[in-house]
Write a protein that binds this DNA or RNA. Structure first.
Length: 519
DNA sequence: CCGATTTAGC
């Protein structure tokens, strides 16, 4: 079959392929775009050389661009189309409205909506769905709702679009209500609702809904699995994650880049970095997100040198790192105490890869430099920030100051923290402790008094662990667990062991223990 | 025409 010709975007097309293409363009560029996976650039080349340029051809290329995430190109093509005097129809409008959704260009989207009404174009259900989606993606929930309500014969697509819309605006309950009302649901609305829970950090609700889905006769697909794995990563639910991995194999779901990446991430976040790497190497197709996930996973496990080695491999295979990749790289440097490398990558990020550091990158650098005792440089980094330093940045500096006994600078950082978050009891306590450590009793007393005057409540430290499906919760000095005595004996032993390794790894471990109020 | 993967450390 002619249209089964499949071209890998990274390899250059051979003569055989071009022969097919020349033949095919005489038929229809539309089917070519739909059936042959080629770079849209090649389709454009054929289009430019083509003598048959009817409305269908234009529409196909416009929708081809939209499909490849090149909304801007689609809009440019429409300008050309107008110049050639070709009049757009409903199908053209679907592509153009979808482009505006992609570009989050509300004004342009509204213009097309007006154009459609002014020219009396047929408001078909797919076009209404595209408009609803455009209003959702551009942030106009009211307009999306009114569009949705005006659709006489709503389809699954219409309902799903609106479910996603409510979820995007944090109206999870409203999204769920609408979801429950959808008749004859296929996998897509299920995936949308499960994904909405994941996006809202409600991993448990996501897995509960997946469980409900299994009670229906709708077959979960790759997207379902990606969402559920994401939920597992959030919850640290390794057992469910392993079950999903088995399910993927049993059901012969395709290990595509997104699914593989979700598995790599799940294993890393749930503590099994070995299995994470195993899946990574088994994956037939990896993209830059896959590499980013594995780099972040290695960093999370304190495996700094491997993280950097994978970063260098990623560059070697020609993939582009993004700002998330660099967060992993910087986190790795931070864990490994690799100050020079950290500086190098932070600079490289802007100079070589044209990426703009975000607040998180700055806080990572402050943490890295601060831990290494380079307090002046850390402070300079904060001053160089183009955005307002957030609580995390000052928190990193404050932590570093406590670690290296710089009361003056620590004081400054803590006051900034209190300005940003005056209700966080932890900051008052840590600041008072810092004064106490420096034997500045008057200042310590002042801070405690201030906390009392402001009526800041101490939030009790709390942690939880899931064992055999039962969530065990502990608050500070909690003795209510039936096996409390054994647990505390174990904790004391753990603490002793941590004190032994503390000299090798710095003060990080003991800080954590104190911070959680176990001692 | 609707649904997917990566984001510090506390």
């Amino acid at each position: 079959m002619l249209f089964n010709v499949s071209i890998d975007a990274s390899s250059s097309p051979d003569d055989h392929y071009w022969a097919h293409l020349r033949w095919a363009r005489l038929k229809s560029i539309g089917s070519l775009l739909r059936n042959v996976r080629i770079r849209v650039g090649s389709a454009r080349q054929v289009f430019d050389e083509s003598c048959v340029r009817d409305l269908v051809t234009w529409n196909s290329l416009i929708n081809g661009y939209v499909h490849c995430g090149q909304g801007l190109e689609a809009l440019k093509l429409y300008e050309e189309m107008k110049m050639e005097g070709v009049r757009p129809d409903e199908v053209t409008m679907i592509g153009l409205v979808a482009s505006c959704a992609q570009l989050e260009d509300l004004n342009q989207g509204r213009e097309f909506h007006c154009f459609i009404e002014d020219h009396g174009l047929d408001l078909t259900v797919p076009l209404c769905n595209a408009l609803t989606d455009m209003y959702v993606k551009c942030g106009d929930l009211k307009a999306a709702e009114s569009m949705f309500h005006n659709i006489k014969k709503k389809t699954t697509v219409s309902w799903t679009t609106m479910v996603v819309g409510y979820a995007k605006f944090g109206l999870l309950d409203k999204a769920r209500e609408l979801f429950d009302d959808i008749p004859d649901k296929d996998a897509v609305p299920w995936n949308a609702m499960i994904g909405a829970y994941v996006q809202a950090q409600c991993g448990k609700e996501a897995l509960d809904l997946f469980h409900e889905m299994q009670g229906t006769n709708v077959r979960p697909d790759e997207v379902t699995m990606v969402n559920c794995l994401s939920a597992c990563s959030q919850l640290g639910a390794l057992d469910v994650g392993i079950w999903i991995h088995h399910y993927v194999k049993k059901e012969n779901l395709s290990l595509n880049a997104a699914l593989g990446t979700a598995l790599v991430d799940m294993y890393a976040k749930c503590g099994n970095i070995g299995k994470s790497l195993e899946v990574f190497h088994e994956m037939p197709v990896k993209n830059s997100l896959t590499w980013t996930a594995v780099i972040g996973g290695l960093a999370l496990h304190g495996n700094a040198n491997d993280a950097l080695a994978y970063f260098s491999m990623m560059i070697d295979v020609g993939l582009e790192p993004d700002e998330v990749t660099f967060l992993g790289v910087l986190a790795a440097c931070c864990h490994g105490g690799l100050v020079d490398e950290g500086r190098k990558y932070f600079a490289q990020m802007t100079s070589e890869y044209r990426l703009t550091p975000k607040a998180k990158h700055y806080s990572c650098m402050v943490d890295l430099l601060g831990r290494a005792g380079q307090l002046q440089e850390a402070e300079a980094i904060i001053r160089s920030m183009p955005m307002e330093p957030d609580a995390v940045v000052w928190g990193a500096l404050f932590f570093a100051c406590r670690m290296h006994g710089n009361v003056m600078m620590g004081e400054k950082a803590a006051w900034k923290l209190l300005e940003l978050d005056p209700d966080d009891s932890g900051i008052y306590v840590l600041l008072a402790n810092m004064y106490g450590d420096a034997e500045m009793w008057d200042e310590a007393r002042k801070v405690r008094k201030m906390m009392k005057n402001r009526g800041v409540e101490k939030t009790p430290g709390c942690s939880s662990i899931e064992i055999d499906g039962v969530v065990n919760e502990f608050t500070i000095r909690d003795k209510s667990h039936p096996e409390s005595e054994v647990i505390y004996t174990c904790l004391v032993q753990l603490t002793k062991q941590l004190e032994l390794v503390e000299s090798d790894f710095g003060q990080e471990f003991s800080f954590n223990i104190y911070a959680f109020g176990i001692l």
